[in-house]
């Protein structure tokens, strides 16, 4: 996993609440055997027309939002099924930061496993940010993860809350596996002890 770097990036606005994982990656793509390439399937049913050309009505297709790295989206983002394809798609599309007033639990946890920073803001903060993107489509926000700061050209600036362990893991590019492997000596000790105490577990497989 890439370490999360402070950055300044275009913000795409999706003024919708309760966007579920079924919309993020529709069911028909779940049978794939690779975790890469889900970016093109993201929001498939909204994003493309019948003939699979871009739907000009869909907000992420607005030319001003091209290349966006930050997604500003409504309440309860990522609800519905626990599919991990949703964060895979978001990361593959190019977003590494999401800003919302709330997230579904499993989705929120899955973001950190994929190097995505989900920032939680208050409704008032969200409204201010939305207003700025609506007035200046294509505007770029700046994120400083170390300082937990979000800054906009319009002069909005605030600190967001974040679990410190998760923050460190994002900054260091540690996924859950890397974190567990930091305890590798404990795992090895455990295995050595088990081999002595419950030897059949190691003989009979």
């Amino acid at each position: 996993m890439e370490p999360y770097k402070n950055h300044t990036s275009v913000v795409a606005l999706m003024n919708r609440a309760n966007v579920d994982t079924d919309q993020i990656v529709p069911k028909q793509f779940l049978k794939r055997v690779s975790r890469q390439g889900f970016g093109e399937t993201m929001f498939f049913d909204w994003r493309y027309l019948e003939d699979e050309s871009d739907n000009p009505e869909f907000e992420l297709n607005r030319p001003e939002f091209k290349g966006a790295g930050i997604l500003l989206v409504g309440d309860n983002f990522g609800c519905g099924s626990s599919r991990e394809h949703a964060p895979w798609a978001i990361e593959d599309y190019g977003f590494n930061t999401i800003i919302s007033t709330s997230y579904a639990d499993i989705f929120y946890a899955n973001c950190f496993k994929n190097g995505i920073l989900p920032i939680t803001v208050t409704q008032e903060q969200w409204d201010v940010l939305r207003a700025e993107v609506e007035r200046f489509p294509g505007v770029q926000f700046s994120v400083d993860l170390e300082q937990q700061m979000l800054e906009t050209p319009g002069g909005t600036e605030f600190k967001f809350d974040l679990d410190q362990v998760r923050k460190r893991n994002l900054l260091e590019g540690l996924d859950d596996i890397a974190v567990s492997l930091q305890a590798e000596s404990h795992i090895t000790d455990f295995e050595e002890r088990q081999k002595k105490e419950l030897p059949w577990l190691w003989h009979s497989a």
Binding site: V33, S34, R35, E84, Q164, V165, V179, S180, A183, H186, I187, F190, E191, Q194, L201, A205
Partner: peptide
């Protein structure tokens, strides 16, 4: 296996069963 301050406890897994649908990724 290990319980570190501020982190979820780590438990050991003895057996891991697999089928074709949830393993490729």
């Amino acid at each position: 296996v290990h319980e570190a301050e501020g982190q979820t406890p780590l438990i050991y897994v003895d057996r891991h069963l697999m089928h074709e649908v949830t393993s490729p990724q």
